[in-house]
Amino acid sequence: MISLTHFLITSAALFSIGLYMVVAKKNAIQVLIGIELILNAAILNLVAFGRYDKLNNNGQTFALFAIVLAAATTAVALAIILNVYRKYKTIEPDSINQLKD
């Protein structure tokens, strides 16, 4: 039985890597991958705590919901990225600087 601390520290490291990617990267797709890393760190926490709830499966159920929500987020975000590319011919977040055309 692996202790909960191991899981939590692994997930904290994943979260930090994702945070670094979100802040530092100059490409919207890489920022999106960073967000996915952060979501996965959260799901790892849910699953690790869910081991202690056999009766109701709280952690695992909401890990499933979180995975589905992550898929939905990615689909919409990628559609938005494609639109942004069509308009600006770049997907660098810094160069997208106007709300209307």
Partner: peptide, 24 residues
């Protein structure tokens, strides 16, 4: 799997690897 959540692990592979990454 080490957290004893087999179904979540399989879902992770199917949805993330099969769906999201292909989309990306």
């Amino acid at each position: 799997v080490f957290a004893l959540a087999d179904f979540v692990a399989i879902t992770q592979i199917v949805i993330y690897v099969g769906g999201i990454l292909v989309l990306i």
